[in-house]
Computed example of a mutant assay.
Amino acid sequence: MGKRLLILTAGMGAGHDAVAGELARRLASADVETSVIDVLELVPLRLGDGLRRAYEAMVRSAPWTYAGIYRAFFASGRPARSSPLTAVIAARLERRIRELPPDAVVSTFHLAAQAAGHLRNTGRLTVPSLVLVTDFAVHRMWLHAGNDRYLCPDERAARAVTRRTGRPATGHAPVVRPEFRRPRGGGDRLRRLAGAGQDERIVLVSAGAWGVGAVVDTARGLAASGRYLPVVLCGRNARLRERIRDAPALGWRDDMAELMAGAYAMIDNAAGLTCREAFACGLPVISYRPIPGHGREGAEAMARDGLSFFARSPAELVDALDRLGGRALRDTRARRVAALFDAVPAERVIRSALG
């Protein structure tokens, strides 16, 4: 009989769900039965959907509000306290676990990690609870000492997690779909979509699944430089796509690996899964005007580790793009990024926990 794994995620943007889905795909080939639960759907009275909409509205229209919340509740050095919301999710999660008992639980969202850790700490979850951290910067809401093991973006983060929780932690290779490691084509599709000439340098400007951030100004500044052709990735935000006047704009795409293969660089503002996908494709990343909280902290962490640039002004942005024209610098960045993918695969650690 195969093992059974429960994966906990949350539909905040698209990154957490994408990681959960790719984990499920990888483990299915190893005779592991997987099920995926969105923990926001465990909140009664559809309040989880309200939380999702409130967060999206803050990031889109009032980012300073989220910045304050992040400083107060996420960035503190104190251990996270169990909240009433965590308790409600944990109680409903416990009922789900009783209905279909798993052999291990993996959380890919911080609220899920809190709920699973709470159940494990109180003895109501009797199987290993692992946390796969999807942020480059590990804030305190990921951390609950009840969880058995942490899978972190790199070994530096893993050491910090062990210091703060006392639990084992290791770095793991980014969890991205296989097509990003083997992108097809040489960029012809991207050039056709952008209406670009063969000599134009196309720069993807990512706004995430929700299409947030100051990407309109970013595209306008790049277009004005005359040296780069920005293509804005608007996600599912149709209004943003209509607002883009100075550059080609694309909605939600299922062929991102092929588009990335044809780009010169990518400008990102969230430090999430899209950055890992770009790294897998060998596409250089520049963080610019990141969303507050985990976006800014993640951008700083990537730049500190030499994985990307963090441009803090329009002039720095164009300068970073210019510098990427040098083969030596691109090769140096590529080697550092390649080291990420040399780390242990997350599914290998999870299979070990399944026994």
Rank of each mutant, 00 (worst) to 15 (best):
L151N: 02
R120I: 01
A209L: 02
A104N: 02
A169N: 07
E179M: 05
G185K: 10
P168F: 10
N121I: 00
Y150R: 02
A173G: 07
G187N: 12
A194C: 08
P174T: 02
V176R: 09
V175C: 04
G166K: 01
L125T: 02
A238I: 11
G171K: 09
W210M: 15
A157P: 08
V131S: 10
Q114H: 03
A238Q: 15
T170N: 04
C152D: 06
D188Q: 13
R181L: 15
H144R: 08
L204D: 02
L143H: 05
L119M: 01
A196F: 06
N121M: 10
V215S: 05
A112D: 00
N237C: 09
R182Y: 12
L190M: 15
D135V: 03
G187H: 07
G226C: 12
P101A: 05
G226F: 15
R159D: 11
L229Q: 11
A194H: 05
L233C: 04
V203L: 04
A158M: 13
E99G: 03
R140L: 03
L143S: 07
R182G: 02
Y150E: 00
S129G: 11
T108W: 02
H118L: 14
E200W: 09
R220E: 15
S107M: 04
T218I: 15
V205Y: 14
R177I: 00
G197E: 12
L125F: 02
R182N: 14
A115W: 00
G221P: 01
T134I: 04
V203W: 07
G197N: 14
R149Q: 13
H172C: 10
Q198V: 09
V203E: 01
N237E: 00
P153F: 02
P168C: 08
R239N: 14
A115R: 00
P153H: 03
G195M: 15
A209S: 11
G185F: 13
G235I: 11
A157L: 11
G208S: 08
V133D: 09
Q198A: 14
H139E: 10
P101V: 06
A219W: 08
L130Q: 03
R163T: 12
V232M: 05
A194Q: 07
G123V: 02
H118Q: 10
G211V: 04
L222I: 09
L100Q: 14
G197T: 14
Y150L: 11
D135C: 10
L130F: 03
L130Y: 05
D148K: 05
R192D: 09
D199C: 05
V138T: 06
R192N: 12
A145E: 15
E99V: 10
A145P: 06
P230W: 13
L132V: 03
A113N: 03
L193P: 09
V176H: 00
A219E: 05
A219S: 07
L204W: 04
F136H: 08
I202Q: 11
R120L: 01
V127H: 04
L240F: 07
G186V: 07
V215K: 07
Q114Y: 00
A238T: 08
R181D: 06
P168Y: 11
P178D: 11
T218L: 14
A223V: 13
S206Y: 11
L125E: 01
V203H: 04
V212S: 07
A158H: 12
P153Y: 05
G187S: 04
T165E: 13
T165F: 10
R227M: 08
R191W: 12
V133A: 06
V216Y: 02
L233F: 05
A157W: 12
V127I: 06
G185W: 14
R159W: 03
